[in-house]
């Protein structure tokens, strides 16, 4: 492989792996900014992945090449509804956010496999036929050097993810909605006195995170596993939360972290084709995102500070 080919190969693989992390990580940013930890994103991704594969299998002949996009939309809706469980438990019923998030994960893992076994009579679904495939960006692909790296043989999901992160940044930092969201997460009582409905904002944030996590799960399942089983989503949701922390609760920082984690993940599978990398044992690449996150949150790599009101239900009138 020429140098240019190698760079292009590494780059699009990193972005390919990063796309589900960026969507789910963006969901994590939204909910945490409102003061609700969503440990349940792992489970939400499972629900998204399961829904997407199921939809893909049953409606591929109806929607044809549009199947994966409709599947992603359906997953988004289903996962947003599923995340309501967390919202009801932790916002209205004031349950501990970590406990209800853990329960959400258990429920998602149990429920999806239960349904898989009920529908397919075995532990995994059939293989989906309509899958996420590469395309060339018209015009841009012909630019020398940049074209082959960024615009040839790319996955459209990668660019949608980057676009989503940028839109997320604009919403959180440049709109009244974003200001309210951050206010509710930092100082809910102050927000309440300014007439913001704290619990409603939090419900919206949790459902946004559910929808985005569902998109992340749907992209992952339709890009990598093509079917759904208990091991389809194993840690991607937690890795997305890690990307959010590494990116300091900022959509763009999170995106950078997710691309880096995607890079590390892709190296562990494609690294055997690359010089130098192939000599590094896989285990270091596997644990890299997690170790870096521990360093980041410990403040060794800049300071990551969580929103102040995280993990506390808002009770009107209490101080």
């Amino acid at each position: 492989m020429s140098l240019l080919d190698t760079i292009a190969f590494v780059f699009y693989n990193a972005l390919f792996y990063a796309a589900p992390l960026i969507f789910t990580g963006l969901g994590a940013v939204f909910t945490e900014r409102s003061g609700v930890t969503n440990i349940g994103l792992e489970g939400i991704m499972q629900v998204g992945a399961f829904t997407a594969i199921l939809f893909n299998l049953f409606y591929a002949d109806v929607f044809g090449s549009m199947t994966i996009w409709t599947a992603i939309l359906v997953s988004m809706v289903v996962s947003a509804i599923f995340s309501l469980l967390l919202a009801v438990a932790s916002i209205t019923f004031r349950a501990d956010q970590i406990i209800s998030g853990t329960a959400l994960n258990m429920l998602a893992a149990g429920l999806t496999i239960f349904l898989v076994k009920m529908i397919f009579g075995k532990g995994q679904t059939d293989m989906a036929t309509e899958i996420n495939s590469r395309f060339n960006v018209p015009v841009l692909k012909d630019i020398p050097v940049i074209g082959p790296i960024f615009f040839q043989n790319v996955y459209i999901t990668s660019y949608l993810a980057i676009l989503a992160a940028i839109i997320g940044w604009v919403i959180i930092y440049k709109t009244p909605f974003g200001l309210r969201l951050r206010a509710v997460g930092e100082h809910p009582m102050a927000a309440d006195t300014m007439g913001i409905n704290v619990n409603r904002m939090r419900y919206i944030a949790v459902m946004i995170s559910g929808g985005l996590g569902g998109i992340g799960g749907a992209i992952f399942a339709q890009s990598f596993s093509m079917d759904y089983s208990h091991s389809t989503i194993s840690g991607q949701g937690f890795m997305a939360i890690a990307a959010m922390i590494f990116g300091k609760w900022n959509p763009l920082g999170m995106m950078g972290a997710a691309i880096f984690f995607g890079f590390a993940q892709s190296l562990s599978t494609i690294g055997s084709n690359l010089p130098v990398i192939k000599d590094i044992p896989n285990v270091y690449l596997f644990i890299l995102p997690y170790v870096l996150t521990v360093f980041a949150i410990a403040g060794f790599i800049g300071k990551s500070v969580a929103p102040k009101a995280i993990n506390t239900p808002y009770i009107k009138g209490s101080r």
Partner: peptide, 16 residues
């Protein structure tokens, strides 16, 4: 997996 679902629901109820 029916039992995993039941356990998760029990935890939801206790948490609430």
């Amino acid at each position: 997996e029916m039992v995993s679902i039941i356990i998760a629901i029990i935890i939801f109820f206790v948490a609430c």
